[in-house]
């Protein structure tokens, strides 16, 4: 049995053909190839089809409330920086309900990985518009088509100073595995937005549509170039796949926070001296 796999058949609640299956395989493969210890790994998530991922990967997890995967992740990582922490969810979960946490955790720069399955639709609630839905997309609620401008996670992340911003596609397991590995090994907050078809509710942004409307960044692209990364993030004709931006060497939240300035021991492993507390009286 491989790490992060169950030693038994598990019942997976995703629709046949869902892009989530590819993402799950890529995640497990990335974790295995990096040799990460499952007991030292925590997946956090909110609610949604994507947020069910932790159920299907055999490791520690906290599947919390809708939109709240990131607050859990930043807290877990900061009280025990020895853990590998990955927050995972969908576009509605992470960019809609959890939008405020998305903004402010980029500012914090915790050393966590943020995987967002972006299928431009709400799946679990059966097909309403999501923050990333494209204008004109007809849904069960937006019956004449979506009228709002889509949320652009990549440009938002770049504008807030994120040090790792990438986009993958669930249809390319090989590239996605490499992108997840790069996101996990990046020191600091790493956003990986993952395009993914929703076979049940999004009949516009299909597997074929993603194939036709994306392209791979080639080796000429310099991920250290922030203004180039912005240009790429703002592109609407064809969407680039790969690492748009990566900056090394910035201090993480855990490194900057005062309790770790001089002492690297995780706070959960430190002992309280009651006599010192009594001195405060």
């Amino acid at each position: 049995m491989n790490n992060f796999e169950f030693n038994r058949e598990i019942d997976i609640a995703w629709c046949p053909g869902c892009g989530n299956f590819g993402i799950r395989k890529a995640l497990q493969k990335a974790l295995q190839e990096l040799g990460i210890e499952p007991a030292m790994t925590v997946l956090t998530s909110g609610i949604g089809q994507a947020a069910k991922m932790p159920q299907y990967v055999d490791t520690n997890f906290f599947n919390g409330l809708h939109g709240r995967g990131l607050p859990l992740a930043v807290a877990i990582k900061s009280v025990n920086p020895e853990l590998t922490v990955i927050a995972e969810g969908g576009d509605g979960d992470m960019y809609g309900e959890g939008g405020n946490h998305f903004i402010h955790n980029i500012r914090r720069n915790p050393d966590i990985t943020h995987l967002v399955h972006n299928n431009m639709i709400y799946g679990l609630t059966k097909g309403q518009g999501s923050p990333t839905s494209m204008p004109g997309l007809k849904t069960t609620v937006q019956i004449d088509g979506v009228i709002n401008e889509p949320f652009n996670p990549l440009s938002v992340a770049l504008s807030l100073g994120a040090t790792f911003v990438a986009r993958g596609f669930s249809g390319d397991m090989e590239q996605l595995t490499e992108l997840i590995k790069a996101a996990i090994t990046h020191k600091g907050y790493a956003l990986l937005d993952i395009f993914q078809p929703c076979v049940s509710f999004n009949k516009t942004n299909t597997f074929k549509w993603y194939k036709e409307n994306t392209y791979y960044l080639d080796s000429d692209h310099d991920p250290a170039d922030l203004s180039k990364a912005f240009d790429l993030a703002l592109k609407k004709d064809k969407y680039p796949l790969g690492i748009l931006y990566k900056k090394e060497g910035l201090e993480t939240f855990e490194e900057k926070t005062p309790v770790y300035r001089e002492n690297k021991t995780p706070v959960i492993k430190r002992k309280r001296d009651i006599s010192k507390v009594n001195n405060l009286l």
Partner: peptide, 8 residues
């Protein structure tokens, strides 16, 4: 809650 889950 995340902090308690992780042992804090």
């Amino acid at each position: 809650i995340g902090a308690w889950y992780a042992g804090a």
